[in-house]
Amino acid sequence: MMQSPSVDQFSYLDTTVSRLDPRVKTMCFLAFILCVVLTPPDRYAAFFLYVVLIFSVVFLSELPLLFVLKRSLIIIPFALMIGLFNLFFRPFSVFFNILAKSWLSVLALIVLSGTTDFPTLLKALESLGVPKLLTTILSFMYRYIFTLIDQVAKLERARVARSYGRRGWSQMRAAGNILGSLFINTFERGERIYQAMLARGYHGHAHTPRRFVLTRTDATFAAYFTAALAAIVWQAIQ
């Protein structure tokens, strides 16, 4: 058994948010991110309301709060670096602005990916017009990233087993070889996968059946969410 993926580890939860049409979710959260990014930096009240809005969705989604918070921290180092740099010659509101906007955007993405399993998300993106080539690449990545990690772990174990406790610089050569053999393995696997695809009648474009049906819940969620968003934006423009 391979380790479980972390990108959509809570997608098995059956909640109002996870049942929503993934297209609706994607559009709502994209709109959210767009509004957040376009809000002027000094509208502190608006940012507070955004936080309230996104956390009410988190609450609805039943995602563990600690998981959401922990995961959202991932953006902080990047945002902090840019923010601190700006602090030298721009007002504090810019610093706050960078941190708040990136954190809110990441929160929206966490709720989206946390409540939608990755294959469904890809299909939603596809039906929203993201090029097939792009979603196919992402789907292969999702399928094979753990196979690849497993392979790295095996090669690394084999190296450790024969390196008699030696570490550091002397092992760089081995690391290079591991990288090389990983590349060749991956390349060859790619060839074999392509053969397996051809054997099952692949002729240039993969089809997947998709069937998303908009329900009343979708409409209600979209209506409330956009209304709340509109209210916040209106408040900010005033």
Binding site: P119, R143, R189, R192, I193, T208, P209
Partner: peptide, 23 residues
Amino acid sequence: FQDPDDQLFMPTVFDDVAFGPLN
């Protein structure tokens, strides 16, 4: 094929088994 990881290239079992029929 011998290695099922080469043969199962779609994310879900449904997508994989449906791949041939779709084509």
